Amino acid sequence: MKKITILCLAFLALMACKEKASKNDINTDVEENAVHVAGKPLKTYAEISIKEGGEWNGRKYVGGDSFKNVQELQVPKNHTDHSFFIRYEGPGWENNQVGYRLYLDWRNAIDIYGKKVDSLVLPYVGQDGFDSYHEPAAWGQDILKAGKSMGIGGYGRLVNDTVAHFRKVDNTYARIENSENSSSVHIDYEGWDTGDERIDLDVVLTIYQEDRFTKATLTPSKDISGICTGIVKFDDIPLIKKDGVKWAYIATYGTQTLATETDKLGMAVFYKIDEVVEQKEGVNDHLVVFKPTTEKIAYYFLGAWDQEPNGIKDQASFILDLDKKLEKLNTTNLLN
C-alpha cells in the first residue's frame, strides 16, 4: 500500500463563492490567490479536498467545519457516495473554459462543471453546502446528470451487456499534479473486481491550457475484455458519429443539462480506431469498447456548454469544432 504524504495547496485560505458574488469578484480573488509554478500563475488546476475536524460514523463523515486540499489521498475503506468527506465527492480539474469532476466512489462517473467565467473556480465549488454546486451561481454550475452512466468519458467494464463500475475495489489512491502547462488527476485502483476478472487499473486524466478536452490514459494490469468509455444517453438526443483514418468520435448535442430547459450542451469522445472492438449502445451510455490490452489506452473527451464566455452556440458549430479536432488527431495523433 502506498504511503500517504499530505501536502496542502495554496488555495486553502480561499473563501466560498456565494451566489451573489459578481464575475469580477471571482476573477480578482482567484488571480490574487492563484497557485504559481516557476513564478507563473496556473492556467489549469486540479484538486482534491477533504473534510477535517469531524469523524467517521459508519459510512458517513460527520462534523467538521472546513475542508483542506491534499496532494494525495488513500480513499478510506468506508467511503461511498454521499459520505460528506470529499468536497464535491471527488477530484476536480479545470482550465478557463470548462471544469470536470470524478465521483471517487463506486459510481466512478465523470461530470461537467459549466463555467460562466473565464477563470479558475474549483476552490470555491462546494464550500457553501455539500451539493450547492447543483444550483446556478456566478461562476456556473454542475450541468450534467450522470445517473447510472459513466457520465462523459468515464470508464468501466462491459460485462454481459451491463457496465460494471467500481463497486468492488481493494484500494483506491488518488494524486494531484499541477504544472505550468497542464493539470492531472492520477488514480490507482488496486484489486478491481468485475465478473470473473480482477485487475489493477492506473488512470491519468489531464487538462491543458487551451480548449475543452481532457486526455484520459488507462493502463490495465491484465488484458481483459470489456474495458470501455462512453457518453451518457438522453432520450431524444441522437448520437453523432464520424470516422477518420486513425481516429473517430462519437458525440451528442442538445438540451441535455441540469441548468435550464433550453440551454445546449455538446459532448464528445475521440478514440483510436485500432484500439477499439466496437462502438455500441449500452443501457445508460453510448459505448466505446476497447480491445484487451496491457498497453496504455488513450482517448479524449470534452463538454461544450453554450453559456460559456464565447461558447459554442449551435450544433453546426459544435460539429465543425469536432471535425477540426478529428483532422488534427488523424494528422498528429495528439490534440495537446
Rank of each mutant, 00 (worst) to 15 (best):
Q279W: 05
Q256N: 09
E281C: 05
D188V: 08
Q315N: 14
W56R: 09
W93I: 13
L334E: 15
T252G: 07
P123L: 03
F290Y: 14
Y124A: 09
G39T: 04
E308A: 14
K145Q: 10
I176R: 05
L329C: 03
I152G: 04
E197H: 12
E52R: 09
Q97G: 00
V163R: 06
N33T: 11
I26T: 04
N27I: 13
A298E: 14
D223G: 13
E180H: 08
I110P: 00
L287V: 00
P91A: 05
L104G: 01
F290N: 07
I152R: 02
T80E: 13
S49Q: 14
I50M: 01
K246C: 01
W247G: 00
A216I: 07
P123K: 06
W192Q: 01
N178K: 05
F130M: 03
K23S: 15
K264V: 00
K23C: 07
N160K: 15
K20Q: 11
G154Q: 05
V62L: 08
L102D: 01
V117A: 02
K264Y: 09
G54I: 00
H82T: 01
S184R: 11
T229C: 04
L320F: 11
F85G: 00
L122D: 04
T5E: 09
F11E: 11
A109D: 14
Y88C: 09
E281I: 05
H134G: 03
W56D: 10
K324Y: 06
W305F: 13
R167E: 12
L9T: 12
F130P: 00
S22G: 13
V169Y: 06
G64T: 01
